[in-house]
Design a protein around this nucleic acid. Structure first.
Lengths: 116, 116
DNA sequence: CACATGGATTGACATTCATCGATATAGTTG
DNA sequence: CAACTATATCGATGAATGTCAATCCATGTG
């Protein structure tokens, strides 16, 4: 991570410019692309799907490793990308880390498409 | 291109399974990821934006090379990815190739998010 | 405190990707 | 047909990405 240190909640930031009919600026395109990059991996899409359908709307890493058939470090890595993109929320309780959908983030991302 | 020879119109194919509450299958995730991969590049987002805002809803490569500050082969490459993803339509008239948004494709892609 | 466990981080490696220069193809025009 | 123009394709190259094994950190529990 070089110049893009702390770009959490990319979903929020990706819709700051007035938007509308003008051509997407390079900067706005960059921000929006970050969100879609997070969605551009089959395993990450499945992670979102599993978390969405999980009981209580949250799941811990141990629940996610097996269905994806991936190692724990890899799952942890994907989850971090989804958190950085503003799509997932992470809450640590005791030894476990619980991940849940950020409310409205999916809809907001869909909105990014409409405001192209 | 190896085993993924002819997967044009990925947007259409990416929503075939019944979908709903079940966890995304690996195959569905793969298909949906292809569409988001096409959107996961700032220059491709700008291409969509420019085509969307262009007069007559279409633009040729020569209109797109300059605003992106990219070489013609690179722009052509990006356009092909967007066409393969089912987001853009290509029509060749004379020497020029005119690109336009596939009607409903953007909305359909937004729908992919809702049906995660 | 020693140990076990859930999870994050690091480093390495192979694959994919964005970009470019060079070239090929296909219309257009003289 | 020759020259020109608009695009597409090819080959190479450097950067980004997905994955894993190993390790580290924190929180429990005996």
């Amino acid at each position: 991570m070089t110049s893009l240190q702390n770009l959490e909640l990319a979903v929020d930031e990706a819709c700051c410019a007035p938007s509308g009919q003008a051509v997407l600026s390079a900067e706005d395109a960059q921000r929006k692309a970050l969100v879609f990059k997070a969605l551009a991996d089959p395993n990450r899409l499945r992670l979102l799907s599993i978390v969405k359908g999980a009981g209580g709307g949250e799941a811990c890493v141990c629940d996610l490793t097996e269905p994806l058939d991936l190692g724990q470090p890899t799952v942890s890595h994907h989850l971090k990308i989804l958190v950085d993109a503003g799509l997932l929320h992470r809450e640590k309780r005791g030894t476990w880390a619980y991940y849940s959908l950020v409310p409205g983030a999916i809809e907001q991302t869909a909105g990014l498409l409409a405001s192209l």
